[in-house]
Amino acid sequence: MSTFVRFWGTRGSIPTPGHKTRRYGGNTSCVEIRIDDSLFICDAGTGLRELGVHLLAREDKHLEAHLFFSHMHWDHIQGFPFFVPAYSPEAELHVYEAKEANERVVRLLQAQMSSEYFPVSFADLKSRIHFGAVTSDTSVDGVRIRAFEQIHPGKSFAYSFEKNGTKVVYATDNELDLSAKNRDTIATNPDERRILPKEFVRFCENADLLIADGQYTESEYLKKEGWGHARATTVVDLGLQSGAKQVAVFHHDPMHSDQDVEDKISICERRVIFSGSKMVVFGAREGMTLKL
């Protein structure tokens, strides 16, 4: 069995091209997960455009992909109208949302391609597009897929992909800090380990790779509480409590340069070292592929 994960977009909120963001990239959320011959795509931020070009060059004529949306904010859907395989009659796309999202994905993908926003209508896409919902027993080509509701304005969902003991969790746009049981004491002592809800820790348990929203530093978060994103250090605590092997800090702040991201990751690494764990923590980087 083989599992590959490639980051096509790691930026949060809005694309940030330019020399200050070359290393970690400026495209918004899009992650490719390839488990054996099955292709799963998490979110359709602007990174999806490049993935589409890549797929057309690399794949056989018939392309089948399973696309999962964490939620429908701009930075997670903007790449879809530019996803070239969606225009190909040879392509088959399975588009998923969590069951609790109540067909929000269908409605908003169509709405973003209405003529007021985009010149091509959703109805003109030539690929075969199927809509589905992730339930407690969803399985695709032997890969078990589960969804978990997160804390974000308007709701968002995390997804886990698991096959033969290998597990990838994609959990972006989640204000994990609001769910910490010891929020009050963390406010006075940021070094204190955050106690996170058992249900979510269990959802992420023993991930070979946990990709999680860690947009803010400690000081930034204090000014942006309620905006729907987590402190990178809280994501480290999630990884430690859930027994993740590797944590990819994701959804970098659009104001962060490469150096800022590296400084943020250094703080995360120190937190791991102080905990005595050997967990690997790194900044998710556009163009990087991991083999699990």
Partner: peptide
């Protein structure tokens, strides 16, 4: 790559 085991990457 920069201490993280990575199968492939665009180099900077």
């Amino acid at each position: 790559l920069n201490s993280v085991k990575a199968f492939a990457a665009v180099l900077r």
